[in-house]
């Protein structure tokens, strides 16, 4: 086993650590840094639950090694809401539209939609839905997620009171 020293920021906070070369970024975030909001659901890059942002790009943290994130600016679901607890519009849209049930896949979906909107605040419904094609949700049948996307695209308000 070879260990490497890495430095990175997670949700704006600096971290440094020694990690085994084989440790995935997802496992590193969860086990070493305690960001357990990132969920590992398939660990082979299909389901998207573990998605985090790396320098603003949505990445599967199960397929990226922690050592590859040396020097990177990583964002996880814990960093989406404002310091005062105000939800990010993506989180709020998911909440307003029953966009989650068990919530296991949700962090990855929230990160993906956030990166799409950060790249292009006027992203269309079709663009966001295309980005969602890389995520699996077993609970919701995607209905609330699609409504959340419409809300984020400026079509229609959320349905939850």
């Amino acid at each position: 086993m070879s260990e490497h020293r890495i430095e990175l920021t997670v949700n704006g906070r600096p971290h440094s650590a020694r990690v085994e070369a084989r440790m995935s970024l997802g496992e590193f975030l969860r086990e070493e840094l305690g960001y357990t909001g990132t969920h590992l659901a398939c660990e082979h890059g299909v389901c998207g639950a573990c998605t985090v942002s790396v320098d603003g790009v949505a990445m599967r943290s199960c397929l990226m090694l922690a050592v590859q994130a040396d020097g990177a600016d990583v964002g996880t679901v814990e960093g989406l809401a404002a310091a005062d607890g105000t939800l990010h519009p993506v989180q709020q849209a998911l909440r307003d539209n029953f966009g989650l049930q068990c919530g296991f896949c949700t962090p990855g979906i929230a990160i993906t939609l956030t990166t799409v909107l950060t790249d292009n605040p006027r992203a269309s419904e079709a663009e966001m839905e295309a980005a969602m094609s890389g995520h699996v949700c077993r609970c919701t049948g995607y209905q609330g997620i699609r409504r959340a996307i419409r809300q984020l695209a400026g079509h229609g308000a959320g349905e939850a009171a």
Partner: peptide, 22 residues
């Protein structure tokens, strides 16, 4: 009968749930 926003979402949306692996 109301579409009341879910209580569970508060923790699940911000990554503060407690699943077994947590």
């Amino acid at each position: 009968g109301q579409r009341t926003a879910r209580k569970e979402d508060g923790r699940l949306l911000v990554g503060r749930g407690q699943f077994t692996d947590d």
